[in-house]
Nucleic acid binder design. Sequence first.
DNA 1: ATGTGTTATTGAAACGTTTCAAAAACTTAT
DNA 2: ATAAGTTTTTGAAACGTTTCAATAACACAT
Lengths: 366, 366
Amino acid sequence: MAGDSGAHGDLSSNGTHPTKDSKKATIRDVANKAKVSLGTVSNVLNDPERVAPATRNRVLKAIETTGFVRNIAARQLRGGGSKAVGIVILDSSNPFFTEMIRGAEDALRQEGYLLIACSTDGSNDREAMYLRHLEEHQVEGVLITPSNDDLEQIIDFHDRGTPVVLVDRESHSGELCSVTVDDVRGGSIAVSHLIDEGHTKILFINGPTTIRQCRDRRAGVDVALKSLKKVEEADWIEVVDLEVPSLSIASGEEISIELIDLDPTITAIMCANDLVAIGVMRGLARSGADLLSRVALVGYDDITFSSLVSPALTSVHQPQYDLGYAAARLLLEELGDSNHRHHEIRFTPDLVVRESSSGRSSQSQR
Amino acid sequence: MAGDSGAHGDLSSNGTHPTKDSKKATIRDVANKAKVSLGTVSNVLNDPERVAPATRNRVLKAIETTGFVRNIAARQLRGGGSKAVGIVILDSSNPFFTEMIRGAEDALRQEGYLLIACSTDGSNDREAMYLRHLEEHQVEGVLITPSNDDLEQIIDFHDRGTPVVLVDRESHSGELCSVTVDDVRGGSIAVSHLIDEGHTKILFINGPTTIRQCRDRRAGVDVALKSLKKVEEADWIEVVDLEVPSLSIASGEEISIELIDLDPTITAIMCANDLVAIGVMRGLARSGADLLSRVALVGYDDITFSSLVSPALTSVHQPQYDLGYAAARLLLEELGDSNHRHHEIRFTPDLVVRESSSGRSSQSQR
DNA sequence: ATGTGTTATTGAAACGTTTCAAAAACTTAT
DNA sequence: ATAAGTTTTTGAAACGTTTCAATAACACAT
């Protein structure tokens, strides 16, 4: 920029970083350098076919010479989009969510969007705060796993003009797009696996039934049982319920204490998610209990580390990355289509069988 | 807004979401409703003491009635900040980084900033792309773990006006703030622990020595050895080196094949990070090898799941959350202080001893 | 009522970019 | 040289908010 001091006018210090206070080049600087109008520079940036090649090259050179970096805020103000999307998740310590973010980020990067990540830790108030900040920034859309069952605040947010895609949560009345996994089916295939292995009395450790995913997974167990009873008249299969206050490793550890003296006719445990299952494993290991050599264990989510614990955990695989990727693609679709119709993408989970449910001694007891 | 149609003027459809196309309230709408000037509304929002209570209340009511949401882009254009900070990390699958993001987000949330998360996966080109996008958005600062040793592109970015804090990386010439962990010391305390346990021949599985952290951790081993040799003239301690191409679980699994026939005089293994150590464990378990019952294993990072694998992994604890939190605080400090002097915060790691290095049979062999 | 000092409010202009009607420049045909 | 058609370029105005010099309003003293 050595030869351009004149184009920048006053280079006086404004008190911030006195040693490095050059003003950034604007579109006006480029226009002056290339001896064209502001509109022509804008056309070169946004509609290059409209500009004669010679002029275009002159402008491109001036852009390089001045070190021009476009100002998104100015564009946004004039009516352009913010090129940013918010993602609001529950817990950034849970690999389920971080894989989801990864999928969303990959999809958005392809279109030149930035991803603003917000963790609510299940707090409705924090969710409200983040939504407000995102609205002030005029993000082009938001991907969100709601902090609770009541979608009112999210729907209000959407109604004020920002497209929303629900992640791992349905929109019952169809006013929002959503990406979900069929948790009823997930519960069914997990319990069916255990039944196929010969287990007849199964403990289901659920999370808070205020959480729809917990309810669905448990409901899936009933669906599988009903279906089996119809086909095989299998009336001897029994499911026992227990509930932990949160879907965390800590909750699993706490409940493991109650499992030490588990009814010996229970030969299988199914947990509402992997963190709870891992906590159970950890708690039992800590207390020296040998329960898991006779009892099968199944988790839900198939987070990255489930294959690394010992015994490796059988788990219902949720396509975490795909959830995030699909949600972002759905949002991009909505942004590009003024006649967009909301819809839902539903993924089907599958079971990944590992050590924790294999070769348990249920068959010898049956 | 039912009684306000006049204030909004033309509510004609612009072809986007025809059913819900109300224009958002601007500061002008608030001013009209409260019968004050634009400047007064701005003062109520930004400098409320300057406005008479009666006027202020009238304006606040109008803000509520109109549903006004401030427009950050407009403020930014006029000279306000973007209230957004970028964080550029290497790999969002590694819990080390996700914990770090969590710390940064918590610190920034307190000041009303949003966090824009970007993953480079170690790619210099992707890092460059993200830096450019962040610059267009005029983020108020960037926290970054560099994708490689060459900081030139990051320093250029900083020199163009955006404050930068390096995370887990030093700035050798002091032109940037940084937050690091003393990896030399981490290496030392890990190997010292093994020596204290009686191990005299130790295998060090390093990552790419182009990565400064890998070099430092290995260097720390030498520092501990030198120190010990001075004090106790302990010339019998030996370290054997091996290198994996990347710090991943997969690399650890691959190298585990070579460990099956490990020299029996090697009684301890130290890995450059937890993912490699976990990979080694997994690979050995898969091949049925019983090596880890006689050989101690130490990792580095102490990611969340290290305590959950079996045997639970002894690891050098890195304060991941604190790294992120401190980096963000340092950046906020720099933003608030026009006479800011760059400095470095250096954390001291500590060793968390778990099963993987306890009670290995090294002492009976010595 | 007049003068002085203080507080509160106003409103023009700035910020960087895009947009599109109008003007200018270019090309081709007569 | 003139006219018509096409391409290229221009530049005024808009976007929402902040800022600060100028003005208005208010309070108090004489």
